[in-house]
Simulated assay, not measured.
Amino acid sequence: MTNAIHWPEWVPVAGHQLRVSGVHFDTLRIQGVRGEQVAARLVAEADGDAGPVICEATGFRWMYFLVAPGTAKDHTWPLGVQRFGTPRTVTYIGVPALAGNTWPLLWYSEPTPTAPYVAPAHLLAVLDLVSPSAS
């Protein structure tokens, strides 16, 4: 994980807070092992600078990939990928602080000045390589 000093205004100073997807970012959510595999490959291919990916450490172990606002709708996402950030629905995403106790949310990959968001095209390419049966 890259620990560059970059604190977007939508990231809380402490703990975690809910943010509306579609305002500061759009969100793509993938469950369990498949989400973890996609995140690991995305980060590895980006040399640790993949953009913001949030991990929910309990329950279904969701991975949340934050892309630039308005960009999630520009792509056709495969089965198993949930998209949030459409004007028709309001979805709140838990965003952890960059430091301190944020359980059960944590940063798998932090936003940085060079990668403030996950690149949707790169995420799609990685999704093509990770089998949906892995979840």
Rank of each mutant, 00 (worst) to 15 (best):
C55E: 15
A14N: 06
R41M: 12
V13H: 14
S135Y: 09
A119I: 07
A44L: 14
V20P: 02
P69C: 04
G48S: 02
L106A: 09
R34P: 01
V90Q: 15
D26I: 00
P132D: 13
E45F: 01
D47H: 12
P87E: 10
T112H: 06
G32T: 01
D26V: 02
A134P: 00
E110K: 13
L106P: 00
G32Y: 04
T112G: 02
Y108A: 04
T58P: 00
A50M: 11
V11C: 12
E110V: 01
G22N: 11
D49A: 11
I5S: 11
P104Q: 11
L98S: 02
L106Q: 10
A121T: 09
G32C: 12
A99V: 05
T71F: 01
S133V: 08
Q17I: 02
V43P: 02
L42Q: 04
V43K: 12
V90M: 15
N3L: 12
Y117A: 03
D49C: 04
L79F: 02
G100N: 04
E9S: 13
F84V: 00
F84P: 00
A4W: 09
I30V: 14
L123R: 09
T112W: 07
L66Y: 08
E9W: 09
G22R: 14
S133N: 07
S131N: 14
Q31M: 10
L18F: 14
V90C: 14
G51S: 08
A99E: 15
P69F: 07
V11D: 08
E36A: 13
A44Q: 15
P120F: 05
A50N: 06
L127W: 07
G85A: 05
M1E: 13
T112V: 03
T102H: 09
H6M: 03
E56C: 00
D49W: 06
A115Q: 09
D49F: 02
F65M: 02
E56A: 04
P111R: 04
Y64Q: 04
W62G: 01
Y108D: 03
A44E: 15
D128I: 02
W107P: 00
L42T: 01
V130K: 10
N3T: 11
R88D: 12
L123T: 02
D74G: 01
P78G: 05
R88I: 00
Q82W: 05
V130C: 06
P104D: 05
P87Y: 07
A72P: 03
G32M: 07
M1N: 10
G85R: 08
A46E: 07
A50H: 08
